[in-house]
């Protein structure tokens, strides 16, 4: 696999504030890559550097084999972008804005555009000043997917969409993925990222703190187990990898480090397991674990 986006040690400062602090990011061609982080972590700044809208102060960034600043115009022919904050021209209609964005990018598939307008239930004859946030976002999303490009950069594209439109959006992402396109998806919606993304990067205060497939990340965290046995459970608290255990003679609830799962289960079978449910960690839990101390600190 080749690399669509490769960023290492990226630094961007605004005055004294360090928005990106040696950030790393690697997105392989053909994958859908989730880009996660709390507000102000530097997601949009990273994307704007990748688009050549901001100039990096340090580090390396390569986009589709080119330099994001020097080769901006050439690269932009090969990608489509949905900004986090969609601003349109109040006196142009949605349909005009879609055609304009697609034309400026280098061309439009008219049939695909009409099909997308239909699927997203957008009224393209309305002036943009009358659109809600969700409808403005639909304009940007339709304009992006109506272009057949190699890379889609989507900055929180669904934050204003209703659940039906969210489903349509997920279909669209799957379609471009099937055609071998690459997607960088910044999002706060965990279910969306879990449903769509092959790999995720979690950033915090301008640094990458975690990167990998969801399975890999899950491996780094804990699974919740709830178990009922025939014989009273003893000594569970001393088993390595077990956390937050609540034992009530033959019942127990606890979290276990996923890497220690095997020997914990072996230990439990001594007490004759009658029922067992296990819940793999959700992305949300992963995320909260990385930011939990920040939340705690804020309290």
């Amino acid at each position: 696999m080749t690399t669509a986006i490769s960023v290492s040690g990226l630094v961007k400062t605004f005055g004294r504030a360090r928005a990106l602090d040696e950030l790393d990011l690697a997105v392989e061609t053909g994958e859908v890559h989730g880009f996660l982080g709390p507000n102000g972590a530097g997601k949009s700044t990273t994307i704007r550097v990748l688009l050549g809208l901001l100039r990096a102060d340090g580090g390396e960034a390569t986009l589709l084999g080119g330099h994001p600043w020097r080769d901006a115009v050439e690269l932009h022919r090969r990608l489509a972008y949905v900004p986090g904050d969609v601003n349109l021209w109040p006196n142009l209609t949605g349909g005009e804005a879609i055609d304009l964005f697609a034309a400026l990018r280098g061309g439009i598939d008219k049939r695909r555009r009409d099909e997308l307008v239909e699927r997203f239930q957008l009224d393209p004859s309305k002036k943009a000043r009358t659109y809600s946030k969700g409808n403005r976002q639909k304009v940007a999303v339709v304009a992006a997917f109506a272009s057949d490009v190699e890379l889609y950069i989507l900055d929180e594209p669904t934050s204003g969409l209703d659940p039906l439109m969210e489903a349509v959006f997920q279909e669209c992402v799957r379609e471009v993925k099937e055609r071998g396109r690459t997607v960088l998806l910044s999002s706060h919606i965990f279910s969306e990222v879990e449903a769509l993304c092959d790999r995720v990067s979690i950033i915090r205060q301008g640094r990458t703190v975690e990167s990998g497939t969801l399975a890999e990340l899950r491996h780094l965290t804990r699974t919740s187990i709830s178990v009922e046995t025939t014989h009273p459970i003893a000594g569970l608290l001393e088993v390595s990898g077990v956390h937050d255990a609540q034992v009530d003679t033959t019942r127990a609830k606890f979290d276990v480090d996923t890497s220690e799962l095997d020997h914990v289960l072996r230990y439990l079978t001594r007490f004759e397991v009658r029922t067992l449910t296990s819940a793999p960690p959700s992305l949300e839990e992963l995320f909260m674990r990385h930011y939990g101390d920040e939340l705690a600190g804020a309290r």
Binding site: W89, T93, G95, E96, D99, L100, L104, P124, S125, K127
Partner: peptide, 25 residues
């Protein structure tokens, strides 16, 4: 606000066309 065109005319589809459209009023 009245409904407008569902798709853009050719004249709008360039940076110059856009600038003209935004500034003509």
């Amino acid at each position: 606000a009245r409904p407008g065109p569902r798709s853009a005319k050719r004249a709008l589809l360039s940076p110059l066309g856009l600038a003209w459209r935004l500034q003509r009023g």
